[in-house]
């Protein structure tokens, strides 16, 4: 599985399709850090949001980059569609870990912050980046050609979900009192950004509660993708 994951990753890298999502994330980060000094957790909250959007885009292009024959042969060699799906997720996780590390280390190495990053901030920021990156990758699992043949339609729906996830709190605020729970149905991006921003003063239980819920959401998406993959046909 690790070998297939690294092969798929190499195949994606050699397809050069990562250029647009990674390039966009880097440009956004450069703009954010175009001046200094910057507040630590506010900046990390913004870069974790970049990682959510970038992760969704990257995952979408990664899952669609392999042609039908390559997918068929990979499934045959792996032995099952589930092992293939697990390899895809493993490859995406590796990219998310790498990008999270980059987003976390860049401002520190480039001395962009107004203060030294504390251990608590490190822990919360790294967990937050990883959780939102995984969540971003997760929302794209079901928008690949194997599930939605029309790529334009898949792109449009994915974009709507990404926008709704980021703006869920504002949308939910407009809803009647009884429907405010709906915001928890969407990927908890807005909650996470807000929590990261307030993490220096907020109660730790609240902060880890939101981070935990985000991980839970990302794992649920991964589990659903893994389970449903056994019920789908390989692309033709």
């Amino acid at each position: 599985m690790i070998r297939l994951a690294s092969f798929l990753l190499a195949s994606y890298i050699r397809s050069y399709r990562y250029f647009a999502p990674v390039g966009s994330m880097l440009i956004a980060m450069m703009l954010l850090y175009s001046y200094k000094p910057n507040p630590v957790m506010d900046s990390y909250a913004v870069t974790s949001a970049f990682l959510f959007v970038g992760g969704a885009w990257l995952s979408f292009s990664f899952l669609n980059h392999a042609g039908a024959v390559l997918e068929q042969l990979s499934v045959i060699h792996a032995g099952s569609m589930r092992k293939y799906a697990a390899s895809q997720m493993l490859a995406l996780l590796a990219v998310i870990v790498f990008l999270s590390a980059f987003f976390l280390l860049y401002p520190v190495v480039m001395n962009m912050f107004a203060a030294t990053v504390s251990a608590r901030q490190w822990l919360i920021a790294s967990s937050g980046h990883l959780a939102l990156g995984m969540l971003g990758a997760g929302v794209s699992y079901f928008f690949q050609a194997a599930y939605i043949r029309n790529i334009s339609r898949a792109t449009a729906i994915l974009l709507i979900i990404v926008i709704l996830s980021i703006g869920a709190r504002q949308f939910a605020a407009k809803l009647p009192e009884g429907l405010s729970w709906i915001r928890w149905a969407f990927p908890p991006v807005a909650e996470m950004i807000d929590t990261l921003m307030r993490s220096d003063t907020a109660l730790l239980t609240g902060v880890w509660g939101v981070i935990g819920y985000t991980y839970l959401y990302a794992f649920a998406l991964a589990a659903a993708y893994w389970i449903f993959s056994a019920y789908r046909d390989a692309r033709t």
Binding site: G67, V69, L70, Q72, L73, I76, H77, A78, G79, S80
Partner: peptide
């Protein structure tokens, strides 16, 4: 599994 080999019609 996996002791099946597949020769696809068009190898990319």
């Amino acid at each position: 599994s996996p002791t099946i080999g597949l020769v696809a019609e068009k190898f990319p």
